[in-house]
Amino acid sequence: MKLSEYLDESGIVLDMTGGSKSEILSKLVEILTKTASISDSAEILKTLEDREKLKTTGIGSGIAIPHCKSAEVDRVHVVIGISKSGIDFESLDRQPANFFFLLVAPENAGSEHLKASAKIVRLVRDDQVREDLLTMASPKDVYDYIKSKE
């Protein structure tokens, strides 16, 4: 599967706001509910928060990939939040994060969620891609850009 196949334009937000990790996760889950049929979003949020307590998913260079498995979804979903100014996500490099990729996979996803994480890293580890993504004017632009990079 390609990264764009896990994405939907309605799951891309360009003006991410939030003062804390908890608020960002909450916002990302809220975006997820627009792209996937979720009955218990609070459960997903709690799983994500528990996961972050184990180890931050802010991998540095402005990138964060919060993720979890949940029975609430029947396929892998990725939603994207972008913040031009950056928001503190307790990342490994202590720098604010600009790119939030929420990845939620079904309980029986096997290794698909790992492959999806690797695809995200492959995309955004390129400095130019990160610069380009910060200049995008609309969710459609982001979606088309990611598709063009596959």
């Binding site: 184990l54 990939i65 490994l92 994480s117 690797a118 695809k119 890293v121």
Partner: peptide
């Protein structure tokens, strides 16, 4: 084999 997993290694444990 994928370098991406080296980047992710510490956060995935």
């Amino acid at each position: 084999n994928k370098e991406e997993y080296l980047v992710l290694s510490s956060t995935i444990g």
